[in-house]
């Protein structure tokens, strides 16, 4: 197994706030990596660094053996990196179909009829086909999350980054989405998935990484990571610390 994504010594600060400090990890092609960590651990920032929305201060990002550290977001998307946003960012005045077609034609490079078909496939995969003509601004949360996924899929990604895609969903809504992500991984798309709902995460991912204060605390087998003393301390200790600070 060759690493599809190699992150080496990635760092990012906002003034005095460290959001990524010497972050190093690999994601092998066709596997799923879960990311957990307390609030403010730098999980979303890490995704923004990988997608190129934020420039990193130091470190390198290699995708498919190519250094993409200096490349901007759109060219990384074209190279095959797609993401979903934690808080869905639909194009509210466009239809669901148009939203997804944007991903297909700009990110995936599928134009005209081929693009329409790619968009329809992404809508079918995510179960949004019956809403295709609705303005995206009218969707409820679950469908907005699905739309995030559909748009990302339409770019024909090799790596998909999911930022709390299951957050805010009910217990009933969760399993189909988890199945969908597992299906993606099984079809060969590499997945990096941030999630607070650990049981959903561990049922899919091959490896788990725990971040705290921008640093990698532990990475490896999901169950071992969740059992490691450092991770337990960060999870249980953090609420205590916050309680004392405020």
């Amino acid at each position: 197994m060759s690493a599809l994504l190699e992150v080496r010594g990635l760092s990012k600060r906002f003034g005095n706030v460290v959001t990524a400090e010497d972050v190093t990890f690999d994601v092998a092609e066709g596997t799923a990596l879960g990311i957990v960590g307390p609030n403010g651990a730098g999980k979303s920032t890490l995704l923004s660094l990988i997608t190129g929305v934020l420039p990193s201060d130091s470190g390198t990002i290699t995708f498919q053996g190519r250094d993409i550290t200096k490349e901007r977001a759109p060219s990384r998307t074209k190279a095959g990196i797609a993401r979903s946003f934690q808080i869905p960012r639909p194009f509210v005045d466009m239809t669901v179909f148009e939203n997804v077609y944007v991903g297909a034609t700009f990110g995936g490079g599928f134009h005209g009829q081929v693009g329409y078909e790619a968009a329809v496939r992404a809508l079918e995969t995510t179960g949004l086909m019956h809403l295709s003509e609705k303005p995206a601004g009218q969707l409820r949360l679950l469908d907005r999350k699905r739309l995030e996924l559909a748009r990302a899929l339409a770019t024909n990604p090799r790596l998909i980054l999911l930022d709390e895609i299951a957050g805010g969903l009910t217990e009933k809504e969760l399993p189909p989405l988890v199945d969908l992500i597992r299906g993606l991984r099984d079809s060969g798309v590499t997945v990096v998935w941030i999630e607070h709902i650990v049981h959903a995460l561990t049922s899919v991912v091959d490896e788990l990484m725990c971040l705290a204060l921008g640093r990698v605390l532990a990475i490896g087998d999901p169950h071992e990571v969740m059992r490691s003393p450092e991770v337990i301390e960060v999870y249980l200790g953090s609420t205590f610390d916050i309680g004392e600070a405020s």
């Binding site: 929305v53 759109p74 639909p90 991903g103 990302a152």
Partner: peptide, 24 residues
């Protein structure tokens, strides 16, 4: 045109447009 689709996406959310490959 395809360019116009990109403009419309930028109008609604430029960050999301950029992450879907639109050169904002």
């Amino acid at each position: 045109s395809r360019l116009g689709l990109g403009f419309t996406a930028i109008r609604d959310d430029s960050v999301a447009a950029g992450s879907l490959g639109v050169r904002v």
